[in-house]
Design a protein around this nucleic acid. Structure first.
Lengths: 273, 273
DNA sequence: GGCGTTTTCGAACACTGTTCGTCTGTCACG
DNA sequence: CGTGACAGACGAACAGTGTTCGAAAACGCC
């Protein structure tokens, strides 16, 4: 039975060592480093960043490592597990937020927002990989570390546990969705915002050309629909989210700050502003 | 060159006709209806709902229709286009929101929330399909119809165009993400909330068993992290979103209701409560 | 040196989306 | 009524995929 390295996300022990050359292998003389989960992950990540997620196949990774696809299954049960660990490896690049000192606890929202921007930066650096970030409850070591840090900030701000948990979910959802959208643009050949402009202009023109009697709002809003840079839209989403969460913070809540939500499928009447 | 039916989403002309039996085909005597984009979509949707999105292959659809995979490419350029039209077909099941009468314009938030719940219900009925709903700008006829209706409500409430556009994006993002999460649960064999409980208990136990010195908040919040039914979490997310948007509505805004956002990568200081 | 265990991986399986070129049923035209 | 043209249907094949099996190699140990 293979090893199935658990990989406590610490530095790999003997990762960069060259293969001992005095006893050359018979069949595969190239003989990279003897293969390890870390080496596979690093190679796979390089491929994803270079050629995109769709171009990542077990064969391709194996070939890059100078071996066959079957070898990878000693370290990963299947492709999905490889992708999961790949994602966690990337999450490890995000600097966890540090809770503000008790004296300046009012700054927590700024800390949270900054961390969202930090996450965004890392995800955009590995755009395509983020497509695998489904709504799974994260359990990788790096995800845990980040979640712990973020929860510390939210709880420190006096946000009830349940709200903090759900709020974290929502924030990561927004961050991931933003990165995925960007990845889609890139995979359509629109690398920068300038590259995307012709496409957006096309969409704008299409909206504007719709029959005005059936689509009066879309026609009127054609410019607004495609307006705003990625940064602006992200800022809007994050502010909406975090400012909303702020209503639940204990010390300086604006109004009644309801902790238990009342609105359900039916009772949506009393919810609004 | 094939037809590439544009399919203005109206009822198909001669869809359900049986093949004329007096001149039986030589090779394929079964001879279903002569094939049409609608028939393909309907068949594909049935397969997705029955066996999941991953089980949907062009071969499988073709086989179900009694033909070969090549035949489908007369109606759809590729699988992606089929999936897009499939998604639009499902979006067509969502009842578009109706803007409240001018006299009761304060009810707009309730209308929006109810429409979110309606969308959720439809997406949950076709759980797996929703996985294809990437952050694309929707251009299918049914998507357009729904978007138009929702924009009408938001604009009627006095929400600025730009905010309305971005807000719609965020809402559909939340709705889709919720459905995708549910789909993932189902694809792991956890159909109902009762089925998911053992899994959640496992996650809860795992969080609780982490080293308390390095993960104090996760350990303490182990129950909170897995708490709440799907309905509750969805209600939280939607309320957070819509109530946040309500701050931008012109007539009865709570506070200063800033229309232009100020917070960016750096200037996040003044944002919070 | 020889043996048993662990790790590696070539070859194959059962699929996938997509294309090519042939076949065929239908229909307008002479 | 015969015939040619043509649009649509589709069998077969291509190049790829994730994954498995079992044989081969490498290693540690007596």
């Amino acid at each position: 039975m293979p090893a199935r390295a658990v990989s406590e996300s610490s530095a790999p022990a003997g990762a960069g060592l060259p293969a001992p050359p005095w006893k050359a292998r018979r069949k595969a003389p190239a003989a990279r480093q003897p293969l390890s989960a870390e080496a596979v992950i690093e190679t796979a990540l390089r491929l994803v960043d270079k050629d995109g997620l769709d171009a990542l196949s077990m064969r391709r990774v194996a070939q890059e490592l100078g071996t066959g696809p079957a070898s990878l299954y000693a370290y990963f049960a299947n492709k999905e597990e490889l992708l999961e660990q790949l994602l966690d490896r990337v999450i490890g690049e995000i600097p966890p937020p540090v809770a503000p000192a008790p004296a300046r606890q009012g700054d927590w929202a700024a800390v949270v927002k900054r961390s969202c921007w930090d996450s965004r930066a890392v995800f955009l650096a590995h755009r395509d990989l983020v497509k695998v970030a489904r709504a799974n409850i994260p359990t990788g070591p790096n995800s845990l570390r980040y979640t712990e840090a973020m929860l510390a900030v939210l709880r420190g701000a006096g946000i009830p546990d349940r709200i903090a948990a759900w709020g974290m979910d929502q924030m990561s959802l927004v961050i991931v969705a933003d990165a995925v959208e960007s990845a889609i643009h890139v995979s359509h050949g629109r690398q920068t915002e300038a590259d995307a402009e012709p496409y957006l202009a096309q969409v704008r023109e299409y909206y504007g050309s719709l029959p005005a009697d059936r689509f009066p709002n879309l026609v009127a809003m054609a410019p607004a629909m495609t307006e705003g840079s990625g940064d602006e839209r992200f800022a809007f989403a994050i502010d909406l989210m975090v400012d909303g969460l702020a209503r639940f913070a204990r010390p300086g809540a604006t109004a009644g700050a309801p902790v238990v939500l009342e609105s359900g499928v039916d009772g949506v009447d009393g919810g609004g502003a």
